[in-house]
């Protein structure tokens, strides 16, 4: 039971971070379908830090270095989305999809190159971080506390305060609702959209590194992040683009994702004799059902997905 709680919380943290990232980007008016790819690149940044930093440094240094590594790479990567969608008014769906494919391909090529350079016989795309991972964990009895749970809560507070209580957040949201109106009162729409995209890069990058630190101590980059970026988008839609509701939605989805990891720990679930594949597909099935019921009365930002054109009325 404790294990289920632990996995639920850690997966919910991932979903919360990434969904908040999507939330910032969409409120500014840019649909970020590339979250999945940004997660992979963020995970790569953190994993590289863990690989090259010796495991003997103090946990605080390790945690900060890993967070920095993933944020820097993820933000750099999300500029690709910004350049294409804000500057060149490209199709946001297409560019997002391209970022997802590019993220996995680039990470795989890069990690394989590093591994092969270190050992010519090693052609895997795996990075190990058994030692470094310990910095993030604190054992409280049988419960494994992960610092990312704190990071996720901080992100939630940051999102809530900055979106609803600051001038910046309100302006950001105006650009997603009616950019022409925002522009007419002197808000720089392009700047605000850049801010939205870059903040979503920060949060998605954190989510990515958090995801590969949940449960395992090595990651095969060929696998990407298994649709988590899209699950996060489902969480965001279920949460109706509002940070607090997103947090609740993330907990629900985290629970179903956790079940597929630990279902064999429950006697009554094992006795049902359901194949593992069913548990694996559960989060996706649930999100489809949830989306079917919540998308009708969508409170999506009105101007999301439409490139801003000053000349349009």
């Amino acid at each position: 039971m404790l294990l289920l709680l632990q996995y639920t919380l850690i997966f919910a943290s991932v979903l919360l971070l990434v969904a908040l990232g999507g939330c910032f980007s969409e409120h500014s008016g840019v649909i970020n379908l590339g979250l999945e790819g940004i997660m992979v690149i963020g995970a790569l940044g953190g994993a590289l830090v863990m690989r090259y930093l010796s495991a003997t440094v103090s946990p605080v240094v390790m945690i900060l270095a890993v967070l920095c590594g993933s944020v820097v790479l993820a933000v750099a990567y999300s500029t690709l989305l910004g350049v294409a969608c804000i500057k060149f008014r490209a199709d946001q769906t297409l560019v997002g999809t391209a970022l997802n494919l590019l993220g996995v391909a680039a990470a795989t090529v890069f990690v394989k190159a590093i591994n092969t350079a270190a050992d010519p016989n090693d052609v895997s795309s795996t990075i190990q971080y058994v030692g470094a991972k310990k910095a993030f964990l604190i054992n409280v009895g049988n419960f494994e506390f992960n610092w990312f749970m704190v990071v996720a809560i901080l992100a939630l507070v940051f999102a809530y305060v900055s979106l609803y209580k600051t001038r910046f957040g309100l302006r950001l949201m105006a650009c997603g609702e009616h950019p022409q109106a925002a522009d007419s009162v002197g808000i720089n729409v392009h700047k605000m959209r850049w801010a939205g995209v870059l903040i979503s890069g920060v949060l998605a990058g954190l989510g990515g590194i958090c995801y590969i630190l949940a449960g395992v101590s090595e990651w095969k980059f060929e696998n990407g992040v298994a649709g988590f970026g899209f699950l996060a988008l489902a969480v965001m839609i279920f949460g109706q683009w509002k940070p607090t509701r997103i947090a609740l939605a993330a907990l629900l989805f985290g629970l179903f994702r956790a079940l597929s990891n630990v279902y064999f720990g429950f006697d009554f679930l094992v006795s049902l004799n359901i194949p593992g594949s069913i548990y694996n597909m559960m989060p996706y099935v649930i999100s489809l059902i949830v989306l079917a019921f919540t998308s009708k009365k969508s409170r999506a930002p009105k101007a999301e997905g439409i490139p801003y054109d000053k000349g349009q009325r």
Partner: peptide
Amino acid sequence: MYSSQISDLISAIIIYLCGFVLF
């Protein structure tokens, strides 16, 4: 020296660039 995924990388770059076709 390289992995075969380099071709996946190139086709992903091409998809990204296709976003600029309109431009």
